[in-house]
Design a binder for these strands. Structure first.
Lengths: 135, 135
DNA sequence: AAATTTGTAACATATTTTATTACAGTATGA
DNA sequence: TCATACTGTAATAAAATATGTTACAAATTT
């Protein structure tokens, strides 16, 4: 659910990092992303579950970063958004009576797993602070 | 169109490599992938446009590999299936009046571009023959 | 000529993603 | 204490994308 999850999440976190002293409302954040506030709150719910942010309900409520941006890596964000690098699988179960069909998904998984390792290594080297400081 | 494009294409090519002397019908290939033959023909059309395979119409027609499997890399297949590694973008144009919204897509593109380089390097080192010989 | 296959278009269905509406619960502050 | 402005979440709707089906002309073989 939500395919631009990573992009949206990093956008949210960048905003929170830019306003470290404020509780930002989902409406404000949604205005920057140009996205429905409910979807912003859903992504924030995910961040909260990972203790990356904290929110305050009620008037003047909102959300605030709860971790050190220098210590939060893009890899962690990547993993929190349930993303996996890969080039996809065919939708249907391939034919188990065909030697190729029987094994293709396993071989693709192996390939994609290597890709993930490479990408993870890269993302591990970039912190939210690094990313945010580009702006 | 077709999201398992890469997986389907490499499945097709692996089959063609396994039967180098036959023209395989879209129906036969579809039976291994468990996919509609029309969709197989669509992917084959893409491969034909890149001169990777040749087909023969009419009775006993079908498709056959037209290149050396040792010289066709997964990177080429990746590119032919129009895939790009990345973690996606938010669907809507972000707010251009917000310093973060204004620039986030550019920064994401830069990040994804690096990811592509890393992944391409990996895929460049694997030929269709390598992949197929695992089976 | 009959049979079989590609190529392609048009349309239908399914799945996934995004958007909207609604409203209960919570904190703020006038 | 009451109006206001938020979060949290569910339910539903709409839009976008992916996959599947049907149909049939054109090509080739036997």
């Amino acid at each position: 659910m939500i395919s631009g999850k990573f992009a949206i999440t990093i956008h949210i976190l960048t905003l929170l990092h830019k306003f470290p002293n404020d509780y930002l409302s989902s409406e404000f954040i949604a205005g920057s992303i140009n996205l429905n506030p409910v979807l912003v709150r859903k992504e924030i719910a995910n961040l909260k579950a990972h203790h990356i942010v904290e929110s305050k309900e009620g008037k003047n409520g909102g959300t605030k970063l709860a971790v050190n941006a220098a210590e939060l890596t893009l890899k962690q964000i990547f993993e929190m958004t349930f993303e996996t690098i890969g080039l996809g699988f065919a939708k249907n179960q391939p034919n188990p009576d065909c030697p190729v069909g029987k094994n293709i998904n396993q071989h693709l998984e192996n390939l994609y797993s290597e890709m993930n390792q490479k990408v993870s290594l890269q993302l591990e080297g970039i912190s939210l602070e690094d990313f945010s400081n580009q702006f």
